[in-house]
Amino acid sequence: MLRRDEGATLTELIGATGWLPHTTRAALTGLRKKGHDIAKSTRDEVTCYSLAGAA
């Protein structure tokens, strides 16, 4: 989901994983700490996350 052009909202990530919101955000932080470039943007006034440079 993070590789999609439009990225994924927190709600979409929660729905896909079944995790709680704080666990989902912690996973994104873990990816950042491992060196992945997580980009934030907005779609319909909602924050979207995506892997920067992902094709």
Rank of each mutant, 00 (worst) to 15 (best):
Cys48Met: 07
Thr29Ile: 07
Tyr49Phe: 15
Ala26Leu: 11
Ala27Asn: 05
Glu45His: 05
Gly53Gln: 09
Ala16Pro: 03
Cys48Gln: 02
Leu10Glu: 13
Ala27Cys: 01
Gly15Trp: 04
Leu51Lys: 05
Ser41Leu: 05
Thr42Trp: 01
Gly7Phe: 09
Trp19Cys: 10
Ala27His: 11
Lys33Glu: 11
Ile14Gly: 01
Met1Asp: 04
Leu2Tyr: 00
Asp44Ala: 12
Gly7Tyr: 09
Glu12Lys: 07
Gly7Asn: 06
Thr24Asp: 01
Arg32Tyr: 02
Glu6Asn: 12
Met1Thr: 02
Thr47Ser: 03
Ile14Lys: 15
Ala27Val: 07
Leu10Ser: 15
Ala54Lys: 04
Thr9Gly: 15
His22Met: 11
Thr9Pro: 09
Thr29Phe: 03
Ala27Tyr: 13
Met1Val: 04
Arg3Met: 11
Arg32Thr: 09
Glu12Pro: 12
Lys40Met: 08
Leu10Cys: 11
Thr9Glu: 11
Thr17Glu: 06
Thr9Asp: 12
Gly18Gln: 01
Ala55His: 03
Thr17Asp: 08
Thr17Gly: 06
Pro21Leu: 10
Lys34Tyr: 00
Gly7Glu: 09
Glu45Cys: 05
Gly53Phe: 03
Ile14Asn: 07
Glu45Asp: 06
Arg4Pro: 08
Lys34Ile: 02
Asp37Cys: 00
His22Lys: 11
Asp5Leu: 13
Tyr49Pro: 04
Glu12Ser: 08
Arg43Glu: 11
Thr17Tyr: 05
Glu45Lys: 09
Ala27Thr: 01
Lys33Pro: 00
Thr11Pro: 02
Leu20Thr: 14
Gly30Arg: 14
Asp44Arg: 01
Tyr49Ala: 10
Arg4Cys: 10
Thr42Gln: 14
Gly15Ala: 15
Pro21Ala: 10
Glu12Ala: 14
Lys33Trp: 03
Pro21Asn: 06
Trp19Met: 15
Gly15Met: 08
Lys40Val: 08
Lys34Gln: 12
Ile14Gln: 15
Cys48Ser: 06
Arg32Ile: 09
Gly7Asp: 05
Ile14Trp: 00
Val46Cys: 01
Asp37Met: 02
Glu45Asn: 09
Arg43Phe: 12
Ser50Ala: 13
Leu2Val: 02
Tyr49Val: 12
Gly15Tyr: 03
Gly18Phe: 05
Ser41Arg: 04
Leu20Trp: 05
Ser50Phe: 00
Asp5Thr: 13
Gly7Cys: 04
Gly30Tyr: 02
Gly53His: 05
Leu2Gly: 15
Lys33Asn: 14
Leu13Val: 06
Trp19Gln: 12
Leu2Cys: 04
Trp19Leu: 15
Met1His: 08
Gly18Trp: 01
Ser41Phe: 01
Lys34Cys: 04
Arg3Ser: 13
Arg3Gln: 10
Arg25Trp: 07
Lys34Ala: 15
Ala55Val: 06
Thr23Phe: 12
Ala55Tyr: 05
Leu20Lys: 14
Ala55Asp: 14
Thr11Tyr: 08
Leu31Arg: 09
Thr17Asn: 03
Arg32Val: 04
Leu20Ala: 15
Ala26Cys: 00
Thr17Ile: 02
Thr42Glu: 13
Leu13Asp: 01
Tyr49Gly: 05
Thr24Glu: 14
Ile14Glu: 14
Glu6Pro: 05
Leu20Gln: 09
